[in-house]
């Protein structure tokens, strides 16, 4: 091996199945992106980094619609995730979102606007301060970030801004799952004459007021964002609340 693993990585590897342990690496971007070192500096500076197959980024290898590229981050195989940052190396706005799982499994589905073919990465920080990085290449013809939102062409969204529709599943193979959609143009500011206008923060709390998950969203998240969470076994309604960068707040109850 060209680069020796640190003691921390060796200790980690000892706890994993051999195939996964073999895939652990500290150097040499598995996605071989020219921007990796910049990404590392921007998001993970000063902390140990491991490319870790337990952080799964699921996305189509070719995006049919660059405005709505589905991305699922599943770091549930990695214990003790405190924070997950999602970024796309070659997007004009690189940072997509951050989420803090708190009382929920480290799992989030969403959609993103991509301007060109790029790695989409998730870096999951565990309590020991190590960033575990996973990712996938998505090929796209582009235009996702500099194309106007559909809302730009109509005024109807203004009456429905921040309208939340959502549902929880308590039975079947997807029991514990929460899905929601928020009406918001998520304008990137890269379209001439349309300033950046996007959701910045979404908090999920249970009926006892305990926070289940916190999500910070940025411009590349798709228009009218749709999120998929796995709540685990917790029961009862979930409250979603948040605000955009213009201070428009919302609060909605997602029934079970």
């Amino acid at each position: 091996m060209k680069y020796p693993l640190t003691i921390a990585a060796i200790a980690l590897a000892a706890l994993m199945p051999p195939a996964e342990a073999a895939a652990l690496r500290e150097n040499g971007d598995p996605l071989d992106s020219a921007r990796w070192s910049e990404m590392r500096k921007a998001f993970l500076a000063g902390a140990p980094v491991l490319f870790d197959p337990r952080v799964k980024v699921i996305a189509p290898s070719t995006a049919e619609n660059p405005m709505q590229v589905p991305v699922t981050v599943d770091a549930t195989a990695l214990p003790g995730v405190v924070e997950v940052v999602v970024f796309a190396d070659f997007n004009p706005i690189v940072q997509v979102l951050r989420f803090f799982p708190e009382a929920a499994p480290a799992f989030l589905g969403f959609r993103v606007k991509l301007q060109q073919s790029t790695p989409v990465r998730a870096a999951a920080r565990t309590a020991d301060g190590v960033w575990h990085v996973g990712g996938a290449w998505v090929n796209t013809v582009g235009g996702g970030c500099t194309a106007p939102s559909a809302a730009g062409g109509s005024k109807e969204w203004q009456q429905r801004l921040n309208e939340v529709s959502g549902r929880q599943w308590s039975e079947g193979p997807n029991a514990g799952r929460v899905r929601l959609r928020i009406v918001h143009p998520m304008d990137t500011g890269l379209v001439a004459g349309t300033p950046a206008f996007f959701l910045e923060e979404i908090n999920f709390t249970d009926t006892a007021g305990k926070r289940v998950m916190r999500v910070q969203t940025y411009e590349p998240v798709s228009e009218n964002p749709v999120f998929t969470l796995n709540r685990g076994e917790a029961a009862g309604p979930l409250e979603a609340s948040g605000r955009d960068n213009n201070g428009n707040a919302f609060k909605a109850r997602i029934a079970q």
Binding site: I58, P70, R167, G172, N174, R177, R179, V226
Partner: peptide, 9 residues
């Protein structure tokens, strides 16, 4: 049934 778009794909 609660599938996400990637599940559907």
């Amino acid at each position: 049934s609660g599938l996400d778009m990637n599940d559907v794909l």
